[in-house]
Nucleic acid binder design. Structure first.
Lengths: 209, 209
DNA sequence: GAGCTTATTGATCAAGTGATCAACTGGCTC
DNA sequence: GAGCCAGTTGATCACTTGATCAATAAGCTC
């Protein structure tokens, strides 16, 4: 046998922990939150289940952390994208387009899993609450900013944020089961938002005809 | 020992099958669809897991059947209740009140479980599709009836039915996690329905002030 | 290059899952 | 009351899960 360094072994603790976290996210996206297993992660990385257990003593906590990581990463990315837009109306339009766009089913299924599994995993249930609050806070800030700028008028930004998020989540849940694409239902969210914000019809419609 | 007939044994096959189905429904409502287990059912009835397996050779199929039974029973009950109402507007109002009323979380959690578990259980996934179609068909019929009676105007009853169901499902999903009560969000559905049907504002509001 | 810190392994446990099958027995029929 | 059909049991298999622990070995420091 040659001296092939076939396996790069013995990574740093920090590196390995990051690798485990990343692998858990991949598994959650592809196969669901409850496909996260000591053995599924270990097999994917090429190590022993005991090693995963060493870095993540509680699998339940790892599931909760993984969900929070996926949901939080999406919110962070959207926050970044929207911050470049000049007006709140454009930001709201982009938000609707993104959250009801194609290739969203991966994140949506993770949310569906979280709502379901959260009943058996207390840490996950708490994380779901945290992420929902974070989304609502983000949308409230967006609505208040637009209101302060005089772009539109909002009576109760907190309640409206919950309503818009509920509609979006409902549409996406249906899309996962039925057509795999929620774009056809964007008009519903646009109409509700325009109506509640006192915007003229079509104000949130896509730019190009 | 006395001759106490402590256990009523040896039921009819039909009786036992019904008992198993009923027990599976109870477990699904209280502890979720994936708490349905040969042993959980058997323990609750007081028989051997093998007996449950005898009547239900496939647990996956039993889970799918149980979901269909719960969802179908609710639709049947609501259909019955609404059929007594004289107008379609009143029926729509009652539908919204019921589907976003208290004590709905049990059924909502079963739906959440079904959306999540359906990815691993093909039979369940198909049943979810069937039940969603049944609900949509029911609502389409309600909308078309009201339109034919001249109570309101509906452009695309099929699309509107999906939209209203998506909103209701989204609100209920949020309610399961957050406040446990979706009544505060009823106005959203009412407003959307009134707007889309050309009804005056408040037409779907509760009768009493 | 000795020694030590720490990443990593292999083995193993207890619990829980669906499923199968021969054996038992309750209760009805003739 | 003998016999038989069908409901029921107990034992058991193969598999998956999370978790623990002593033992190993890699790689850095001195």
């Amino acid at each position: 046998m040659s001296t092939l360094p076939s396996r790069t072994k013995r990574r740093t603790g920090v590196e390995r922990a990051a690798e485990i976290a990343r692998t858990a996210r991949e598994i959650a996206r592809y196969d669901g939150l409850d496909a996260i297993t000591l053995r599924s992660i270990a097999a994917r990385i090429g190590v022993t289940p005991a090693l995963v257990s060493h870095y993540e003593p509680s699998t339940e906590a790892l599931v909760a952390k993984t969900f929070g990581s996926i949901a939080g990463a999406e919110l962070a990315e959207i926050t970044r994208e929207l911050s470049a837009l000049p007006s709140s109306v454009e930001a709201l339009r982009a938000l609707i387009d993104t959250l009801l766009g194609p290739d969203r089913s991966a994140v949506t299924t993770v949310w569906l899993d979280a709502w379901s599994v959260g009943r058996r995993n207390i840490a996950l249930a708490r994380e779901v609450g945290v992420q929902m609050d974070a989304w609502q806070a983000f949308l409230v800030a967006l609505l208040n900013r637009g209101s302060a700028r005089g772009e539109f008028a909002v009576a109760d930004s907190g309640a409206l944020a919950w309503q818009l998020l509920a509609i979006i989540d409902g549409i996406n849940a249906h899309a996962v089961v039925r057509y795999g694409d929620a774009r056809g239902q964007r008009d519903l969210v646009r109409t509700v938002a325009e109506h509640e914000l006192g915007l003229p019809a079509g104000a949130l419609a896509p730019a190009s005809a």
